Deep mutational scan, measured.
Amino acid sequence: HMTFVALYDYVASGETDLSFKKGERLQIVNNTEGDWWLAHSLTTGRTGYISSNYVAPSD
C-alpha cells in the first residue's frame, strides 16, 4: 500500500469519511475511484474515505 501524509486537518462530513489531522500518516487502500480515496490511518487505526487533495506522498 502507498503511504501518504495529511497536509491539512480534515473533519469527516459523513459516516464513510475519515477524519484526520495534519501530519497524520495514511495508507491508501483504494485510489481508483476518482478524487475520494479509501484510506487507513496509521495513527488512529480507522478506515474511511479521504479527499486526495488533502494528502501528499510521504516518500
Score class of each variant (00 low, 15 high):
12 A>M: 04
7 L>H: 02
16 T>L: 14
19 S>K: 03
55 V>E: 03
5 V>K: 02
53 N>Q: 14
7 L>R: 06
55 V>I: 09
44 T>Y: 02
28 I>T: 03
12 A>E: 03
56 A>H: 07
28 I>H: 01
40 H>L: 15
49 Y>D: 02
11 V>W: 09
30 N>K: 09
59 D>Q: 12
21 K>E: 09
59 D>K: 08
56 A>T: 13
18 L>F: 07
30 N>Y: 10
44 T>G: 02
27 Q>W: 14
55 V>T: 03
6 A>P: 00
19 S>G: 06
25 R>P: 07
36 W>F: 11
18 L>Q: 01
35 D>A: 09
1 H>Q: 12
12 A>I: 03
9 D>S: 06
45 G>M: 04
22 K>N: 02
37 W>K: 03
17 D>P: 01
19 S>H: 03
37 W>A: 02
21 K>P: 01
39 A>W: 03
5 V>L: 07
48 G>I: 02
53 N>H: 14
46 R>P: 01
57 P>W: 11
40 H>D: 01
50 I>F: 01
11 V>T: 11
54 Y>G: 06
57 P>H: 09
6 A>K: 00
15 E>V: 09
3 T>S: 07
36 W>C: 14
39 A>N: 01
13 S>R: 13
9 D>C: 04
1 H>Y: 13
36 W>V: 12
49 Y>Q: 03
37 W>L: 07
50 I>M: 03
3 T>L: 14
54 Y>P: 03
26 L>I: 09
55 V>M: 06
39 A>F: 04
15 E>F: 07
32 T>Q: 12
17 D>T: 08
20 F>Y: 07
20 F>D: 00
34 G>W: 06
9 D>P: 03
36 W>L: 13
48 G>E: 02
26 L>F: 15
55 V>G: 04
39 A>E: 01
39 A>S: 02
2 M>G: 09
57 P>E: 08
35 D>S: 10
45 G>P: 00
56 A>I: 14
26 L>A: 00
52 S>G: 07
23 G>T: 01
49 Y>C: 10
23 G>R: 00
32 T>H: 09
2 M>L: 12
8 Y>C: 15
37 W>I: 08
44 T>D: 03
8 Y>P: 00
58 S>M: 15
59 D>F: 13
6 A>N: 00
11 V>E: 13
31 N>P: 10
31 N>T: 13
54 Y>Q: 08
39 A>H: 00
28 I>N: 05
23 G>A: 03
52 S>M: 12
31 N>H: 11
49 Y>E: 03
20 F>K: 00
37 W>V: 07
4 F>P: 00
22 K>L: 05
47 T>V: 11
31 N>Y: 14
56 A>W: 09
47 T>D: 06
39 A>P: 00
22 K>I: 06
59 D>Y: 11
14 G>H: 13
43 T>V: 11
47 T>M: 08
18 L>K: 01
6 A>S: 05
15 E>R: 08
25 R>V: 15
47 T>G: 04
51 S>Q: 15
19 S>Y: 04
19 S>I: 05
48 G>T: 02
11 V>S: 09
46 R>W: 10
42 L>G: 02
28 I>M: 06
38 L>H: 03
59 D>T: 12
54 Y>V: 07
9 D>Q: 01
56 A>M: 12
34 G>Y: 06
51 S>F: 14
47 T>N: 05
36 W>N: 08
48 G>P: 00
57 P>D: 07
12 A>N: 04
56 A>K: 11
23 G>M: 02
21 K>D: 05
55 V>A: 05
13 S>M: 12
2 M>V: 11
41 S>A: 02
42 L>M: 08
23 G>K: 00
56 A>E: 11
23 G>F: 04
31 N>G: 13
9 D>I: 05
5 V>E: 06
32 T>M: 12
41 S>I: 02
52 S>F: 07
13 S>Q: 14
53 N>V: 13
8 Y>M: 11
29 V>F: 09
43 T>A: 11
14 G>A: 14
5 V>P: 00
15 E>N: 10
17 D>E: 15
24 E>W: 13
11 V>N: 10
44 T>N: 04
32 T>R: 10
16 T>W: 15
3 T>E: 11
22 K>D: 02
8 Y>W: 10
46 R>T: 05
33 E>L: 13
4 F>T: 03
44 T>V: 03
12 A>Q: 05
5 V>A: 02
36 W>G: 05
28 I>R: 05
42 L>Q: 06
54 Y>N: 07
13 S>D: 09
1 H>P: 14
52 S>P: 15
43 T>N: 09
9 D>N: 06
13 S>P: 07
17 D>L: 13
59 D>A: 14
6 A>I: 01
20 F>N: 00
32 T>K: 13
56 A>L: 10
19 S>C: 05
48 G>F: 04
43 T>M: 07
14 G>K: 15
47 T>W: 13
43 T>F: 06
10 Y>E: 06
23 G>L: 01
38 L>Q: 04
19 S>R: 02
32 T>F: 09
16 T>G: 14
18 L>R: 01
29 V>E: 07
43 T>W: 07
12 A>C: 05
59 D>I: 13
56 A>V: 14
13 S>G: 08
43 T>G: 05
54 Y>S: 14
47 T>L: 07
5 V>Q: 04
7 L>M: 08
2 M>R: 12
58 S>D: 15
41 S>N: 13
6 A>C: 08
1 H>C: 14
40 H>A: 07
37 W>R: 02
4 F>H: 04
28 I>C: 08
58 S>V: 15
6 A>Q: 00
27 Q>R: 11
7 L>Y: 04
22 K>A: 12
41 S>V: 02
49 Y>W: 14
17 D>N: 10
21 K>N: 09
12 A>T: 04
1 H>V: 13
49 Y>S: 02
21 K>S: 10
17 D>S: 08
51 S>P: 15
41 S>Y: 12
26 L>E: 00
23 G>D: 05
22 K>P: 01
54 Y>M: 15
13 S>T: 14
59 D>N: 12
14 G>E: 11
25 R>Q: 13
35 D>V: 09
35 D>E: 13
50 I>D: 00
24 E>L: 01
41 S>F: 02
2 M>C: 12
59 D>L: 12
2 M>H: 10
22 K>Y: 05
16 T>Q: 13
32 T>Y: 08
48 G>A: 03
12 A>F: 03
21 K>A: 09
